[in-house]
Nucleic acid binder design. Structure first.
Lengths: 383, 383
DNA sequence: GGCCTTTTCGGAAACGTTTCCGATAGGTAT
DNA sequence: ATACCTATCGGAAACGTTTCCGAAAAGGCC
């Protein structure tokens, strides 16, 4: 029998069931239950970072004093502070950001949700975001939706669980419902949309010149003599696809060209699709003499495929694309594009968000439009 | 005079200095000091996420019970659990990961330090890391060193302050001292190097076939008839530069070709440098008939510049590069490369690290070498 | 010496969660 | 009724910070 904790006697001790695998006892004199402690076996303790308490103990002061010394409070003797700073440095003290964040209720971290980190456009945006965020003392946590709506929702939840101070998001191509955004917005989380934005929720947004860029590209094709201009449109759900398509249509209308639905082909950013699109167009009684690809990836693919089929670019078919990359300049013939500035977009979005975080009250659902410029290259010069 | 908190009388109350701007009093009867509270003004309270305590209160149970219900403990009645889960769902409860991490002493987050997120190679690695990490329930925090040693050190410190469970790092080109790594290693932080590794510290490492790839590329050039092969080497400090240069030298030696130092040109990954390198080589009494660029970026630049100068590729000068990208295939002439698998490298590094985190005890400084393959294209086929 | 002051520090609460430990209520055998 | 048992819950401590509040000490002024 065990020995009672209070009376130290074993006389009136009886068994009293099991608790978490350990025998339980009851002392009738003391009317108290107890169990026998196991010799806790874990000498394998993970090395800890030094804490404020460690410093406090080693100097014989209170933790609050150490905190004051480290945070530059005036409520402290300068000699005490010096000593504390010395010891802190000696012990390589690093404040535990988790504890700080938990206490302050803010993490100084912003969450980013993008479709894919490998796409150069988004990588550029990320670099811009990091640049501004780091400058402002914010960390960045990145998630990829992989173009899946459910993953995007999970991403948002994960970032919210990590208690990010704000969210930057560019939607997946599947996303047509925005409840996951609305829910967090209602809870007061600052959110800024960029590139693939939506009209359904009231957030600050950073967008490209989607309409203007498309208009300029198509206008350029028309000025180069193209009369039947096909468009390789993106996923029809995406707002940017729609806006760019609008720009295309507006240009046709403006120059009095007919709108032919058989020349509009929607793709899902997948490799093979531009080929099926091309096959479709070439099988038409009147094939196109110009192609506008909403997404630069499709433009490159089309260029390669046209070359492969020995179709002359730009004389037989001219090609232009939206968005830019080194490859557009180096491929032959070089590709006419509407050049974007992803880095700047990232910077703009991040500074908008951080502003939004700091001044929660004076928020307005502003929409910022990034600059962009027509870069005319060989794939479209027919005159 | 103020009213004493204890005796509620103002008779024996005297002033007693100022404390944080507020008048302080002393009650002589009660021998107690006190100040008058200001009416705290902050109705503008940031919306809070619902907590376990909120759920507990709304159901009239203890927070520990709610925690048990949410974490699938057996120590709970299934009806109680159902109720708690229902309410939790209703209130859109999300556990505060900060509090969890603080308590558990682990964040389920891994830190990544890379030179630059915009470089396709690193973007690919990142994607691989994210893939494995997400699968294993880990979040990823990314920092860019921008090729600066001091920034890299700051990055490491920031990630440590965030209490990441482990670190993945690819060093900046400036980094020759590894104290920042050694310090964390001593504290027990699991660290895995990838790509730009070093020999100075004992960590697990994931590397490319730097030596073998270089050897294969140079061997290929020799087999194509090249006899004076120049090498556009990277920053001489980087171990991968050294290893790749070794591969180059070994191939020359193996085939009995002389080693000519004037054919070795070190660059710093900057744009203009490949041009100065080219100028240097072309000014030699015996210019090279083949160029091996350690970095694919330089290879592309050289290709463009050679075309620009109307120098025939590969007949006059053949070009090969290390590393691959879409552009290598699409440029004309297409570029012969030693193809790498960045995504797989990221996956390997991440799973190595996570394994290291979970089984801290059975760690060994293993070195994993990724696969790679010679992809022969037009820029080097002379026979 | 009494009154008032400033400087400097310690104690405790709070952030939200998990986990340890014990208490209680209700069993079931003898 | 006694001796044992299980199931289910609450309370409190802990993680590492910051911050609120007050105490102690020491000095100045009349």
């Amino acid at each position: 029998m065990g020995e009672c904790k209070q009376c130290q006697s074993t006389l009136e001790v009886v068994k009293a069931g099991f608790l978490r695998g350990r025998q339980r006892f009851y002392c009738k004199t003391c009317q108290v239950h107890f169990t026998i402690k196991l010799p806790a076996a874990s000498p394998q303790k993970a090395a800890r970072q030094t804490t404020i308490i460690d410093i406090a103990k080693s100097l014989g002061v209170a933790p609050s004093t150490v905190s004051r010394a480290l945070n530059g409070s005036t409520d402290i003797n300068s000699l005490t502070r010096q000593e504390i700073l010395r010891v802190a440095n000696e012990m390589d003290y690093r404040p535990n950001l988790l504890a700080q964040s938990l206490h302050r209720g803010e993490t100084h971290t912003i969450g980013v949700v993008i479709p894919n980190i490998e796409r150069p456009f988004f990588a550029g945006v990320l670099a811009g975001i990091q640049n501004v965020a780091t400058e402002a003392g914010y960390r960045v946590m990145i998630c990829q939706s992989n173009e899946s709506h459910s993953t995007e929702t999970l991403n948002v939840q994960a970032l919210v669980a990590s208690r990010v101070d704000g969210l930057l998001i560019s939607h997946s191509k599947e996303t047509t419902s925005f409840e996951h955004i609305r829910l967090q917005l209602k809870k007061g989380l600052p959110i800024v949309h960029f590139d693939r934005v939506c009209n359904e929720v009231e957030t600050a947004k950073v967008v490209q010149k989607d309409f203007e860029g498309s208009f300029a590209l198509v206008e350029h094709l028309i000025q180069q003599g193209c009369r039947r201009i096909a468009v390789c449109a993106g996923p029809p759900q995406l707002l940017i696809s729609q806006t760019r398509l609008e720009g295309y249509k507006a240009a046709l209308r403006h120059y009095g060209l007919p709108l032919d639905d058989s020349l509009i082909y929607h793709t899902e950013f997948k490799q093979s699709e531009s080929l099926t699109a091309l096959n479709h167009w070439l099988s038409l009684p009147e094939p196109p003499d110009g192609i506008f690809a909403i997404h630069y990836g499709n433009a490159i693919e089309l260029l390669v495929e046209l070359k492969h089929r020995k179709i002359q670019i730009p004389t037989e078919i001219a090609v232009v694309g939206f968005g830019d990359e080194l490859i557009a300049e180096l491929i032959e013939p070089s590709l006419t594009v509407f050049h974007l500035f992803p880095f700047e977009m990232g910077e703009t979005a991040a500074s908008l968000l951080i502003d939004n975080i700091i001044h929660r009250d004076t928020f307005s659902p502003i929409i910022k439009k990034m600059r962009g410029e027509l870069r005319i290259r060989k794939s479209s010069i027919r005159l």
